[in-house]
């Protein structure tokens, strides 16, 4: 075979710049103006939340009755300190709390989405690739989980699981990691966050699995899979080296949509007073408190709610840009 490999002599002098698939995708993505702006915004939001302990001017839970309900951009007359986004009903600095809330909300959103995508990917892949009784079991489980209305079952499960703390044992090192990432100081608070993450992930994977199964089913019949099998490729090798890369692009888009969905879901959950509780700030429970004072201090809702809207919009735009960039039929 090696004997007939042609040598591209003519091209050696002026090399043709060939780009890989991902370079193409990146180039196409960079052309989507809104997506690029959104990506920038997301990077800023993530950056701010990561560096929250360094850049926040006040301790997170510092209560001070003398400075309740300061409006945004108020300078505390006693100390001369600036409260960029004002203070809440207990005199805690809003800017500080928003950044810490971002840590919690984004951690929950990203981890749950990663987990649920992982579950969905694996199960969808197995179901699509093997078919038969594997597909049968996974598909029935999927339909069963998807039958439950998400918000209802989530509310019930979180309420039940939080009341029975020892129902799901969560290893200590996981809780330590969560404590470190979200800068939560008590282990039972970390457990609450872990429970919320797990519950969401365990309910959210069905869409990804369904998508992955469909993609794998169509890829499986392609000739290159057959040739790989003819060359003696094992199931594992075919799945990871051939099926997965070809079924992957829609999963990326699905991931961004899932991220947005879970972000809003978690916010709704804590907005309704379930899940993660004060004094641990999340965007949802901050908005919940802000709503109680909506009549006297309407700015509070804006300050607490705009980050959710901004992040959600940005994620959606990035998802949109990715979808366009990954779709070869789409002209940009």
């Amino acid at each position: 075979m090696a004997a007939i490999t042609p040598k591209s002599v003519a091209l050696e002098n002026k090399p043709v710049r060939s780009e890989s698939q991902w370079e193409t995708v990146l180039r196409r993505f960079a052309r989507h103006r809104m997506a690029m702006i959104s990506l920038f915004i997301l990077v800023i939001i993530f950056g701010l939340s990561i560096f929250a302990p360094i850049i926040t001017p006040f301790p997170r839970d510092q209560i001070d009755q003398s400075r309740r309900f300061f409006q945004p951009l108020t300078i505390n007359p006693e100390t001369g300190e600036m409260h960029w986004f004002g203070t809440d009903h207990l005199g805690r600095d809003y800017y500080t709390r928003l950044l810490y809330a971002a840590r919690v909300s984004l951690t929950v959103a990203v981890t749950s989405t990663l987990l649920s995508t992982l579950i969905g990917l694996t199960l969808g892949m197995l179901a699509g690739y093997f078919g038969g009784w594997v597909d049968m079991i996974i598909s029935r489980t999927l339909e069963f989980v998807a039958t439950f209305p998400l918000l209802v079952i989530l509310l019930i499960l979180v309420a039940v699981l939080l009341d029975n703390e020892n129902l799901i044992p969560i290893p200590g090192f996981v809780l330590n990691i969560i404590m470190a990432i979200t800068s939560v100081d008590r282990i039972d608070n970390a457990r609450v966050i872990a429970v919320v993450i797990l519950t969401i992930a365990l309910l959210f994977w069905t869409g990804t699995a369904r998508l992955m199964r469909g993609m794998v089913l169509s890829v499986r019949e392609q000739p290159f899979i057959e040739s790989s099998r003819a060359l003696g490729g094992s199931n594992l090798r075919i799945m990871t080296r051939h099926v997965f890369p070809n079924a992957f692009p829609p999963i990326i888009v699905d991931f961004t949509l899932g991220l947005n969905g879970i972000l809003v879901l978690e916010s709704s959950l804590s907005f309704l007073g379930f899940g993660i509780q004060d004094p641990i700030p999340t965007w949802g429970n901050m908005l919940n408190f802000a709503q109680s004072y909506a009549f006297q201090h309407p700015w509070m809702t804006l300050v607490a709610g705009l980050p959710i809207l901004l992040t959600s919009l940005a994620i959606n735009y990035v998802g949109d840009g990715l979808r366009d960039a990954l779709d070869p039929k789409m002209k940009i």
Partner: peptide
């Protein structure tokens, strides 16, 4: 993108 609760309060 607009969460219903935020829209409602606004």
């Amino acid at each position: 993108s607009l969460p219903t609760f935020f829209f409602g309060i606004i």
